[in-house]
Design a protein around this nucleic acid. Structure first.
Lengths: 155, 155
DNA sequence: TAAAAATAGTTGACTGGTCAAGTAAAATTA
DNA sequence: TAATTTTACTTGACCAGTCAACTATTTTTA
């Protein structure tokens, strides 16, 4: 009770949704939070975070030459300014290797290790199960529609 | 080059999207990441995180009696097991108060302070601008559709 | 009513993520 | 070609989030 007495007057719930988009934003945040939690549960089996999983996918797709550290960061689904640290931790776990490039000595190309590929392989099925579950829940048309609407939102 | 020689064989990009839902998940993560970044930019003006902003909104809506700590956690858009710490930090900043309840001494109801309300007020317009921007970008029908599809995804 | 279970929250140890400033190499420009 | 700018990171300090174990209180149940 150490607040000013007129706090009562000030506390008034604003109209629930002034803009319709506010409701969409909340729905977006909630839905994504839920999906992220499910993905986390899967990646946790191999002691990695969803972000680290994303890096592994990117590096597997990149092939032998690997990719410079910051380029990996740019390709991530969720932007991650802390990409150096993220990859530090992955290197410690033996999931990736890093070697300063010979041609451009500023760059440090990262490559996935065979251990990293093993981890991806072992997560493949449980990850597919998440996707299959959604695929079953929503029609293909609605998924297309959703993808389209989300693209529109991103402009 | 300290990887096994057959790593070359193992690196093969899996088909881009085995399930259509995979593409939707990526779109969802990307879109939400972008929106969250915009929201962060706004809340940063008042030196709070989007989660703290969310707590302030919940507490303003809750009125005088405030809400028990864990109840606040449950109402959050993104679930947050670290709610105690989160509110610790907010209390330090003078945005909320906490007092162990008289009737049930296990509970610690949290209340927003007038300073907390000030912060909400000062973020109101910039936050509305984010919403207005989306409202302008998408038709009301499409927003409804999006909200519906997201609800379907959450089951 | 005493013991057991459930609830509400706190705390400590840890990991992960973020920001700002710094370094080193390459590219650009004067 | 020397000075400047840009690029590609790295590092240090800090904050936020997570997990497991713990305390205190209330509720249930035997």
């Amino acid at each position: 009770m150490n607040d000013s007495p007129d706090i009562k007057k000030e506390i008034k719930q604003s109209k629930p949704f002034e803009y319709k988009s506010a409701e969409a934003i909340v729905a977006l945040l909630r839905t994504t939070d839920e999906i992220k939690r499910r993905i986390s549960e899967v990646t946790a089996r191999e002691d990695i975070t969803p972000q680290q999983y994303n890096v592994l996918r990117i590096l597997r797709g990149a092939g032998y030459d690997g990719l410079p550290t910051l380029e990996v960061g740019k390709r991530m689904i969720e932007r991650s300014p802390g990409i150096t640290r993220l990859i530090d931790r992955m290197e410690k776990k033996g999931l990736v290797t890093r070697n300063r490039s010979g041609s451009d000595r500023r760059c440090v190309p990262c490559k996935i290790t065979s251990r990293g590929i093993e981890v991806l392989d072992s997560l493949r099925d449980p990850m597919a199960r998440i996707e299959a579950d959604i695929d079953q829940k929503m029609s293909s048309n609605n998924l297309d529609l959703l993808i389209e609407l989300l693209a529109e939102l991103r402009k």
